[in-house]
Simulated scan of single mutants.
Amino acid sequence: MTYNYLETLIHPYKKSLNKTESIIAKHMIDLGNEVVNKTLANLSEETGLSEATIFKFVKKIGFSGFQNFKISVASNFRTFEERSNEMIVFSDISESDSPFVIAQKLVNTNIELLENLIATLDEELLESAIELINSSETINFFGQGASSIVAYDSYHKFLRTKFHCQYAQDYHIQLTYATKLGPDDCAILFSHSGNTKETIEVGRILLENGVKIIVLTGDPSSDLVKLSSAAFVVLSKESAFRSETLTSRLVYLTIIDIIYTAIMYDDEKQNRKALLDIRHALSVTRYRDDLP
C-alpha cells in the first residue's frame, strides 16, 4: 500500500471536520504530493471554495501558514520516495504472511509512525511542555487501560529525574490524589481516544486546582485537549487486529523519551545526582562479586 502523508496527517482531525473541511481534506489526500505544486488560488478553483476557507483548514490541522504546510508535505514525501524500492510501508497483516513477513510489516509500520512524529512534532509545543515541567515541583502520571501502562512506564522513567513523581493505577486513588495537587504541580494525562470519561474527570479536578496539564492523545478535538496547557496529538492508522492505542504506543513512549532526555540535560548536575542516588539504592538488589 502506498504511503500518503496527508492521509495520516489529517486522520486525527476527521471527526471534527465540517462538510466544507471534509471536501478540502479529500481533495488534498487525492492530490498527495502534488499539493506542494498548488497555490491557494489553485486549490480554491479546484474545490470551489474560498482561499480563506482553505487557509483556515490548514491552520486547523496544525500549521501556521500554507507555505509551512507545503514544506512539511514536501519533506515527508521526499523522505519516503528516497527509500529503496524494497522498502514498503504496510498497515495490515494477512493470514498468508509468514512470521518474517509479519516482522517486516510491523517494523515498517513502526518506522512510519516515528517518521511521522519527527515530521509533525511542534518545536514550540515541545519547549512549552518542558517549561511546564521545569516550573513544577512534582510530575504526576494518569491514564486508564492501555494508557495506564504508558503512564506507568513514563512514571518509571521520570523517577530518575530530580522531580518527585507519582502514579496510581486505581481510578478512585487518581481522583483522590488529583485533589491534593495545585499550581506547583504538573500532570501528564494519556488517552488515545481523548474521550476516556475517567481521565477527563481527573483532568477537570486538576484544572480546577490550577495544575499544569500536559496531554498525549490521538484526538485533537477531544475534551481532554481543551483542559490541557499543552497537548501532543499522536498520528496513527488503524489496523485490523491492532487497536490504535497499541500501534501508537511506540510514539507516546518516544515523545516521553524526548521530554525526559531534554529534562535530564536541562539540569544535568541535579539530575545526575538523583540518578546516582537511585543506582546506589538499587545496588542492594544485585549480587556482589566478592560474595562467596
Rank of each mutant, 00 (worst) to 15 (best):
I10N: 02
S16V: 12
S16F: 09
S16H: 08
N18D: 15
N18I: 09
I23R: 08
I24C: 07
K26S: 14
L31K: 10
G32I: 07
V36E: 05
E51K: 15
F55T: 06
F55R: 01
V58G: 03
F66S: 01
F66W: 05
F69R: 00
S72F: 02
N76I: 00
R78K: 15
E81R: 09
F90R: 03
D92G: 09
P99R: 06
Q104L: 12
Q104G: 02
K105I: 04
L113N: 11
N116G: 02
I118P: 01
L121M: 13
E137N: 13
T138K: 01
I139C: 10
N140T: 06
F141I: 08
F142E: 05
G145A: 10
S147V: 10
I149W: 14
S154T: 15
Y155W: 13
L159Q: 13
R160C: 14
R160F: 13
F163L: 04
Q166A: 14
T176W: 08
T176K: 09
G182S: 10
D184N: 14
I188D: 01
S191W: 12
S191E: 11
H192S: 10
T196R: 03
K197M: 15
T199Q: 04
G203A: 07
R204D: 11
R204E: 14
I205P: 04
L206H: 05
L206W: 04
E208S: 12
D223K: 12
D223W: 00
K226S: 09
K226Y: 09
S236G: 08
S236C: 07
K237Q: 12
A240Q: 06
E244I: 07
T245C: 04
S248L: 03
T254I: 03
M264T: 01
K269V: 12
K273E: 10
A274K: 02
A274N: 00
I278Y: 06
R279W: 04
T285M: 15
Y287V: 11
